[in-house]
Design a protein around this nucleic acid. Sequence first.
DNA 1: CCCCTAGGTTGACAGGTTTCGAAGCAGACG
DNA 2: CGTCTGCTTCGAAACCTGTCAACCTAGGGG
Lengths: 117, 117
Amino acid sequence: MSKQLTVLEPEVCCAPLATAAVPAEAAVDLAAAFKALGDPVRLQLLSMIASADGGEACVCDLTPAFDLTGPTISHHLKVLREAGLVESDRRGTWVWYRANRPRMASLSAVLDIAPAA
Amino acid sequence: MSKQLTVLEPEVCCAPLATAAVPAEAAVDLAAAFKALGDPVRLQLLSMIASADGGEACVCDLTPAFDLTGPTISHHLKVLREAGLVESDRRGTWVWYRANRPRMASLSAVLDIAPAA
DNA sequence: CCCCTAGGTTGACAGGTTTCGAAGCAGACG
DNA sequence: CGTCTGCTTCGAAACCTGTCAACCTAGGGG
């Protein structure tokens, strides 16, 4: 039931937004990703994961950094996962998260300003 | 009553997310901007405005591009305005919108992946 | 085999979003 | 001045989100 929102072709996401009008289909996919970033907690989570040593972070390190309960952090991580921004990986007792770098790069590229057309 | 959400120092927004953990304050500001982008309609609106000839677009050109009523488009434009992503400007009969390029560049920079540290 | 810990899932509820129709406001034009 | 058009604001209905408490699952030790 947790629809993985297909994540269209990576190419679809890379046309700078200021260069040509984004087609409706691509807009839906991109908006879903930006929506996932539209929460301070999730932004910080992604930031902590992406900047962590080795590019990975354990949930056990993420949770105590917020004044939120475990289930809530778990929920936010799930949103990031379904938006294709992070990937999780159980390793023994703990679950590790790492950022989906290409996906982040795509989003960055979309917002990139045309190099002074 | 439409709190303009102060938009902290532009510098605050420019530290790549994957380089260091985003502080809570900056996260709130950034998340507000990303949240505004978290809707397909708004993403397309911003795209149409930013890619328009002359960098400006008239509401009268934007509205008919969607299956939505005028008030709804106006609402979405307001959200983009309050997020600091666009600026409006009445010119005679019509209202023109233009993108806030530096703001977009900041967001793009935040998502930029560390150039292989 | 039993229990303990680390995380995820479910259910529920307050609060916020999207959308519309109706009404209001600002210029243009006769 | 009166009215028309373009856009915004207001009010309300349907829907989606963030959060927690309670419960469930996976793995590691006694």
